[in-house]
Design a protein around this nucleic acid. Structure first.
Lengths: 202, 202
DNA sequence: GTCTATACAACGATAGAC
DNA sequence: GTCTATCGTTGTATAGAC
């Protein structure tokens, strides 16, 4: 998104801590490259070039490619926003709001970023760990605890299966007709099942 | 680790004595390497070394790394067996039989083979295409057409989301408690949802 | 003798390290 | 910037099957 943050803004007066801008530029560039190409596909050289700095800076600031990855990897949606939008309304229709939120975010770039994320999760243990905590706690943990306190962790994990499965089929495997149908059809088909995981009888 | 599994004696150039099956050794080694490291992570050289043969044999027998991959990559379940076992019984309880079949197969090796398959599907377009056809046609296509003819393709894709999501959460992300609960709990939780995709109102 | 499965060497490309 | 390691791949000589 922010491709070149260093060039478009005047430096403030006085000397700043050495390398601070370089570090931030590398993080921004790394997020873009890792998102578009996955962990293995993204190269240190490409990230450094995008940031407009020397590849050696990756070693200097992050100790290598792995360090840069864990520092840069952030989820392509804001968990806070999702949780907030979901909890604001009828609890018995929260599944529909969850699905619409995810679909609207994921479809903005044709699911490219999401497919890249799934790729990283599947291939990189570090990304899998982050996704584990993200699904279990940050998103569904909070959502489920607000609507149905019993069997909280199981419900969160079950919601994860449905969302992760939708992501895999629609954006990674691209199985028709689910890969290209409109949001309403997807919501009509999946929302009742997701709602059962949230508030139904297990 | 196992550098020379097929024997420690020196190999001479030229054709080897009859009875040694280089092709099969390569397939075995390839399954292990692809399983542990994914498509990109597994190297032709490592596979050949594990098989105790020359890397050039990969080209000779399979035309390259891709050919070896598609040859070695076997779906960790037999589609025919699954379809048969699923269709043999009450259609309204077919979801439960599907889930039990998948779980019993996947849990035999701790989900290692399945996790590798998901990794390959996420990173390799060839594997994604195979999975696409496998889910859409071979497995759920037949199952759904036998129990509910309306909206066949959509139902098949929806079933795919639930199964793929379960695979991701239980075996790749390993999110608790779903990662280590018994089959009955999983079936009780998920079967009703899967059944709705098969025969319910969408 | 012919065929072919095999090992060895080396190439061009690429990417991380220093 | 340079160096080095390693990747997938290709060419070729050779040993053994047929």
């Amino acid at each position: 998104m922010v491709a070149d943050e260093r060039g478009s803004r005047a430096r403030s007066r006085g000397r700043r801590p050495a390398g601070e801008n370089t570090r931030a530029a590398l993080l921004d560039a790394a997020r873009i490259e890792f998102t578009e190409r996955g962990f293995d596909g993204a190269t240190v050289r490409a990230i450094a070039q995008r940031a407009g700095v020397d590849p050696a800076m990756v070693n200097h600031w992050f100790g290598g490619k792995d360090g840069l990855f864990v520092a840069a990897m952030e989820i392509p949606v804001s968990p806070e926003e999702i949780v907030h939008r979901v909890l604001d309304g009828d609890p018995e229709r929260s599944a529909e709001r969850i699905l619409r939120t995810f679909l609207s975010v994921w479809d903005t770039d044709g699911g490219g970023a999401l497919a890249a994320l799934m790729r990283s999760v599947a291939t990189h243990e570090e990304a899998a760990r982050m996704m584990r905590e993200l699904i279990g706690r940050v998103i569904f943990g909070r959502v489920v605890s607000a609507v149905a306190p019993d069997q909280l962790e199981l419900r969160a994990a079950l919601c994860g299966t449905q969302i992760a499965g939708l992501a895999m089929v629609r954006y990674v495997i691209r199985l028709e007709p689910l890969a290209s149908t409109d949001h309403n059809t997807v919501v009509t088909a999946i929302a009742p099942n997701l709602q059962r995981y949230l508030t139904g009888i297990l």
